[in-house]
């Protein structure tokens, strides 16, 4: 009996160098990637840069991805690493060279209102901040967060719990 070849998936096409297929795969992940980077860095320009760089890395390293279903946690893990690496040396990277093409105006009132909480979030160590952002800001299931952070489910639960406790503590302990 003749065996029909499996149909080529979008991922296969992208791995073969079809940048259109890659764009179709990456497009729905840009917004969550931007929110993750934004939650970690709290700077929308830096977040855009991180997502762009992460998308390029994903394109370069796409061969490492086995299944299309794993793309979201795989890409978000790259974004998380990118957020970490942009902070690798403050003295060497205080300036960004490229000016943004688009100016973004952010309402001053809305900025001020969440200042305390954003500061508290920035005060968390990176591991806890990542888990809190993935769970509370991106609404990802714990199982997927475990894949992204390459930690056990139990460890993720612990990090989330400790992160929230610390957030409360940093907010002054008046939130229960």
């Amino acid at each position: 009996m003749a065996v029909k070849p499996a149909p080529m998936t979008m991922l296969d096409a992208a791995k073969d160098g079809d940048d259109g297929a890659f764009e179709a795969l990456i497009r729905p992940l840009l917004e969550p990637g931007y929110r993750l980077a934004g939650g970690m860095l709290q700077d929308h320009q830096a977040a855009q840069d991180a997502v762009q760089e992460a998308a390029l890395k994903a394109w370069r390293k796409l061969r490492q991805l086995r299944h299309q279903s794993e793309m979201r946690p795989w890409f978000l893990a790259i974004v998380a690493n990118e957020c970490r690496s942009v902070r690798r040396s403050r003295w060497a990277s205080v300036i960004k060279l490229v000016l943004p093409d688009k100016a973004v105006e952010v309402s001053t009132d809305s900025i001020v209102s969440g200042l305390e909480l954003r500061r508290a979030l920035r005060g968390l160590d990176e591991r806890k901040r990542l888990v809190v952002v993935l769970r509370w800001y991106l609404d990802l299931p714990l199982e997927e967060i475990a894949v992204i952070t390459q930690a056990s489910l139990h460890a993720v639960e612990g990090q989330l719990q400790r992160g929230v406790q610390e957030l409360r503590h940093r907010m002054g302990g008046h939130r229960g």
Partner: peptide
């Protein structure tokens, strides 16, 4: 409440960036 407040706090400094997709395409 804290979770809702956190979402609002982050949304406030992360405006939508509809051009991000085009920017990524350009970089690619």
């Amino acid at each position: 409440d804290l979770r809702t407040e956190l979402r609002s706090a982050l949304d406030a400094v992360l405006p939508p960036v509809p051009w991000l997709e085009a920017a990524v395409r350009q970089e690619l």
